[in-house]
């Protein structure tokens, strides 16, 4: 058994977000982090590695600097990493991205008892689409919103969260699971891991390496292979500021109650 974890390097949108005058994100001015849900996926894989001794490979698609993130994930305990990177892959929407990552997973080789992990969604796009789309391209079953994983022999039983409860689902391998933050608390890099991070193998899959996979065609990757296009992007206007009430005492609250009652709001 081995585990492949798909991860993404994202701008840290929890801090200050810089927007260019043309409405696009000013990525250069922002910190990058490993997508939070993906770290839960890494932790889930490393827990299974602790139990079974299986191999864990981190995979990302992105520009060459994403190597730094992969080295950090190796320092957390991953055995090796793959960086899928190439100009031909740029401009991909979720559909095209899943074609390319699925081809990358094919190149690593997916066997009968393997598991692919993804985070539920990335904080830059919040789409939650790439995981299920990779599963479809690999023709393997998926379970998303996974909050608990039990491996019993060759069977995987997971807790799959719904808005109003959960399902317990048994799934055949190979399969793809998308992980939510309730699943676990990601571990930190270990000192030994940091020392080893640069001695463990990291492969780069570029376009020539993947081009013979049937998933990789001129009209299935990159901008030309993306079924969706951005028509326009924009920043929403600020709602006009309202009335700041003076003070914070009983008189202030009485005044507010009076205004609201007068306007039939309460």
């Amino acid at each position: 058994m081995k585990i492949i974890v798909c991860v993404k390097q994202v701008p840290d949108t929890s801090g200050k977000v810089a927007v260019n005058p043309d409405g696009t994100l000013n990525r250069a001015s922002m910190q990058t982090i490993t997508n939070p849900d993906d770290k839960n996926a890494i932790e889930a894989a490393l827990k299974l590695k602790d139990e079974t001794g299986c191999r864990v490979t981190a995979v990302t698609m992105g520009p060459p600097p994403a190597e730094g993130m992969l080295r950090e994930l190796i320092a957390m305990g991953c055995d090796d990493a793959v960086l899928i990177s190439g100009r031909e892959f740029g401009g991909s929407d979720t559909f095209a991205t899943s074609q390319i990552i699925a081809a990358g997973i094919n190149a690593i080789g997916l066997e009968k008892d393997d598991i692919v992990f993804c985070g539920r969604q990335a904080i830059d796009g919040d789409t939650a689409q790439v995981g299920p789309q990779i599963a479809e391209k690999l023709d393997i079953p998926q379970v998303s919103y996974v909050a608990d994983i039990k491996k019993e022999g060759n069977e995987i039983v997971v807790k799959r969260m719904l808005e109003d409860g959960y399902m317990t689902v048994k799934v055949q391998t190979p399969c793809l699971l998308t992980c939510i933050k309730e699943l676990n608390e990601p571990r930190y890099m270990s000192v030994g891991g940091v020392v080893e991070a640069y001695s463990k193998p990291m492969q780069v899959f570029d376009y020539p390496r993947l081009k013979d996979d049937p998933l990789i065609e001129a009209d299935t990757i990159g901008l030309a292979g993306s079924p969706t296009n951005i028509l326009t992007s924009f920043t929403p206007p600020q709602k006009g500021a309202g009335m700041m009430l003076e003070g914070a005492d009983r008189a202030t609250c009485e005044k507010l109650a009076g205004i609201l009652a007068g306007k039939h709001i309460i």
Partner: peptide
């Protein structure tokens, strides 16, 4: 949680675009 599981799977199979 179910729609976001189902729609991308269908869009990938149908080879079409999906906006989340």
């Amino acid at each position: 949680n179910i729609g976001r599981d189902l729609a991308p799977r269908c869009a990938a199979r149908l080879h079409t675009g999906l906006c989340a």
